[in-house]
Amino acid sequence: MKILAIDTSNRPLSVAVMDDDHLLAETTMTTHRKHAEFLMPVIEDLVKKAALSPNDLDRVVVAGGPGSYTGIRMATTAAKTIAATLSIDLTMVSSLLTLCLNVSMPVGLINPIFDARNENIFTGLYRFDNQGKLVSVIEDQHTNLTDWLTQLKQYTEKITIIGDTDAFEAKMRSALPNRLVVADQLADIPSAARLGIYGRNITPVANVDSVVPRYLRLTKAEADWKKSHPNEDTQNYVEKI
């Protein structure tokens, strides 16, 4: 199975072309934020370097969020359009879970964190089960550090934090004494190759056209609207004319 895997959820861009579990080509970079400009050229380049043509692909695997809104939209738009236009499978994977795939020798629980500014974070809690399978312990969410620490305190195991950890490490360490492990710096960068391997065994989405990024957060305008219109139907705001 030829797989194209894409992650542009945050500042890093990572794209890989896989043949089953075998890596053919991968590019990962952190030096720019212009995913709009770089994503398609990188895809084009890697597929060519893997000596494949777009038609050879069988599946697209995308880290579909949470993350930067523009970042997850770029990856998801490219992924769903490529899958739709080539009539191939699309698999969506959590961007937080994708980061957990970097932890090769897990100790207890894994806590990926994306900085959502102003003490807010996108986060979730994971562990590898007895079969070595990554499972969700607390579901991905948008929250603030204080509330998140309260949730983490229900567990007694060691917790490996990964991702945007610098800004939160000190506070987390004092809230969770002797339980915090900080993953190495390279593990903070998503690897599309690992995403591709993981996504190969995940059931593809049933309807590619309806795929949207996992924002995990309403826009401010919509949140305010919902508050003032609690019973309003939130479907069918877009019509084909």
Partner: peptide
């Protein structure tokens, strides 16, 4: 900008996929 980017990304993906 965010709106434009959806059409642009999709158009680029289709152009690439079908050369």
């Amino acid at each position: 900008v965010g709106a434009l980017l959806i059409g642009i990304t999709a158009a680029k993906a289709v152009a690439w996929a079908h050369q």
